[in-house]
């Protein structure tokens, strides 16, 4: 398993360092390619992104073209996944919904990481008063229930896609921050860090070279879980009438709306639920694959 040469961490040998990183990337790619599930995940994620980009070419109908005469048609050759309560093609709406759901999922997680990683790093590394202050801030935000905070923010600033993403992002950064800090707390006592310290490596250097890569795996898992969580949170808000507006096709909203139709028009709920499930599976497998591939701890 250990393919790289056993270098003392932090040793200032630049050429060897580069070499080591190149092999690391190569190893990762090779390991990733050997993992079937990871490839499936990669495939799904790629497919999702392509669908989002080329939705105009894939979807047979516009997402907002109502046709009351053909409302609530069961799946047929023309409408693969049926039509909704005003006669819009469900398949087309799901295809376009990829854009919205990816925007919500990725947007929320991006905001979460942008806020969460720096704060988590500082808290986990600096310790002392800085850690204390950051953790109090995290506590303040965590102590306010997510749904309630999002509701408060949306009530103050108004709904719509961008505000929903922003509100959910502001709620979601806590997990990333706490996870990173906890991981660092645990890691910083480990042998290889102690070793680096003995060698005299600076704090920042240890953080970036050794601690962060080691903490990446759980973060990736958190992100892959966070994406569907964000998609769901958006569904919950839509369920309460505070999410994305119609006719913008969000899967979460489609699932929420389908509740009163489910007993008869099952396809209205099943297909968007499947879309969410596939997205979740894709990101999960992909995330797991990445984690296994970049498993830095095996190199230390």
């Amino acid at each position: 398993m250990t393919t790289s040469t056993s270098l003392a961490p932090g040793q200032p040998v630049n050429t060897q360092q580069e070499l080591r990183q190149r092999t690391l990337l190569g190893d990762a790619a090779r390991r990733f390619a050997r993992n079937k599930l990871a490839l499936v995940g990669l495939f799904i994620v790629t497919a999702l992104i392509l669908t989002a980009i080329f939705a105009d070419f894939i979807a047979p109908f516009p997402y907002d073209a109502a046709d009351p005469v053909n409302a609530l048609q069961f799946p047929s050759r023309e409408h693969w996944m049926g039509t909704d309560e005003v006669g819009r093609d469900v398949y087309s709406r799901i295809v376009y919904g990829t854009r919205i759901s990816l925007a919500v999922g990725l947007g929320v997680m991006a905001i979460a990481l942008i806020i969460g990683i720096p704060l988590g790093l500082i808290a986990g590394l600096a310790g002392g008063p800085l850690d204390y202050i950051i953790m109090r801030v995290v506590e303040v935000f965590t102590a306010i229930p997510a749904l309630m905070l999002a509701l408060l923010l949306i009530s103050v600033f108004g709904g719509g896609l961008y505000n929903v993403i922003l509100a959910l992002g502001i709620v979601a950064w806590l997990d990333a921050c706490r996870l990173l800090r906890a991981q660092l707390l645990s890691l910083r006592e480990r042998d290889f860090v102690l070793a680096a310290q003995t060698v005299g490596a600076s704090k920042v250097r240890i953080a970036i070279r050794h601690l962060l890569p080691n903490a990446v795996a759980p973060l990736i898992v958190a992100v892959t879980i966070g994406i569907p969580v964000a998609i769901f949170a958006e569904a919950g808000l839509s369920f309460l009438g505070l999410g994305v507006n119609d006719p913008i096709p969000s899967w979460g909203k489609m699932v929420g709306n389908s509740l009163s139709y489910m007993r008869v028009y099952w396809y209205l709920g099943v297909f968007p639920t499947l879309a969410i499930a596939f997205t979740m599976l894709g990101f999960t497998f992909f995330g797991d694959g990445l984690r296994d591939a970049f498993d830095v701890s095996t190199n230390s």
């Binding site: 569907p228 369920f239 979460g252 509740l259 639920t273 499930a277 979740m280």
Partner: peptide
């Protein structure tokens, strides 16, 4: 476990 994370609990509830 994926099922638990992919199907919103209100959908499960209605089912």
């Amino acid at each position: 476990s994926t099922l638990g994370l992919t199907v919103p609990n209100f959908v499960v509830a209605v089912w």
